[in-house]
């Protein structure tokens, strides 16, 4: 496989206004462009010829989008360009949302965390062992829907137009935690911006993965203050290094002032085309173990899981309950 890159122009706008202007212009000119921040997800895709933009837009000159701050109302506002390593090291994040720091610290390898950004991790492309391959390998098996082909090697009966078209799985480590924290995304486009709750951001498809419009970028991630909410994240991976989650489970417990659990929430990554997220109220006097069982059952039924990973599908399914219980133990429930 030739991993040399060529055939695209490179733009690195200096500052947000320049970025907005550039994206508007590229949209107007109908250029095929890709936006990269850390580039740790995009670069392998470029090298494997999974994407072929005419223009590569780097966000690394847009300093406005980096940084972490707490707003007056207690909202934690994180620039999309914030490197994962900075998130891990941030006193603010560790203090306000330690689970996010922990999840960010589980992404890939230290060098990748030094470069990869939070925005990028939320947008990390869905993966499939039949897609994330060299051109030679994809030719062998016939290109699939995700690379403009006409088959799905996972669901062989799939036809074009049927949703979900593509079963490539969602692998962000930070998304499940942010879902439980009810994070919002501030999306920038043209001169405008809009806010989208993260729970409305993802779509049930490995190709059309989210509601981000062409030319739109994530500007900030906002996490509202959540008193009484504790979140835990753990991932199933072969090694304690480099691997994407074969399964990632975030578990949240919301308690009242007296410390009584009010709500149990669960979010999953690594299994289906998008992250799953559920909340289960714990009614007064309800049996906690029943709620937990319900949460496990719900999560277990979340997605059709396919043979597309080191671990067999049924094993990954089985581990959901185990991981939920372990998180609850760590959360003191």
């Amino acid at each position: 496989m030739n991993t040399q890159l060529s055939g695209f122009e490179f733009e690195r706008p200096a500052g947000l206004p320049a970025l907005r202007a550039l994206l508007t212009r590229l949209g107007r000119e109908q250029r095929r462009f890709a936006v990269a921040a850390g580039g740790t997800d995009l670069m392998p895709q470029l090298k494997q010829r999974l994407v072929a933009p005419e223009v590569l837009v780097s966000l690394n000159g847009v300093g406005e989008l980096a940084g972490i701050a707490v707003q007056d109302d207690g909202t934690l506002r994180i620039g999309a360009l914030t490197r994962l390593a900075d998130l891990v090291d941030s006193t603010l994040v560790r203090q306000h949302q330690p689970a996010l720091a922990a999840a960010a610290g589980r992404v890939a390898s230290p060098q990748i965390r030094n470069r990869a950004t939070l925005g990028g991790n939320l947008l990390v492309n869905n993966r499939c062992i039949y897609v994330n391959q060299s051109p030679l390998n994809r030719t062998v098996h016939a290109p699939c829907f995700k690379v403009d082909g006409d088959v799905c090697h996972i669901v062989k009966s799939a036809v074009r137009g049927q949703l979900p078209q593509c079963q490539a799985r969602f692998v962000s480590d930070t998304a499940p935690v942010l879902l439980l924290l009810e994070a919002r995304l501030v999306l920038l486009r043209g001169r405008g911006e809009r806010r989208v709750p993260l729970r409305r951001f993802y779509r049930n498809d490995g190709m059309e993965r989210n509601v981000l419009r062409p030319g739109e970028v994530i500007g900030w991630i906002e996490i509202p203050p959540a008193t009484g909410l504790q979140v835990d994240y753990d991932k199933l991976a072969v090694r304690n290094a480099l691997d994407f989650p074969s399964l990632g489970v975030a578990v949240g417990v919301r308690r009242d002032a007296a410390g009584q659990p009010l709500e149990l929430s669960v979010a999953l990554t690594g299994l289906g085309t998008h992250p799953g997220c559920w909340r289960h109220a714990i009614a007064d006097g309800a049996s906690l173990s029943k709620v937990v069982a319900k949460a496990c059952a719900r999560a277990g039924k979340f997605a059709t899981t396919y043979q597309q990973d080191f671990f067999p599908r049924d094993y990954r399914k089985k581990m959901i309950g185990v991981f939920i219980h372990r998180s609850l133990r760590r959360l003191g429930v």
Partner: peptide, 18 residues
């Protein structure tokens, strides 16, 4: 791995221009 502004990064995943 090389140090970019003091931090280890993967030189194969960085565009020189970036």
């Amino acid at each position: 791995s090389v140090l970019v502004d003091g931090r280890p990064m993967l030189a194969c995943l960085l565009l020189a221009a970036d």
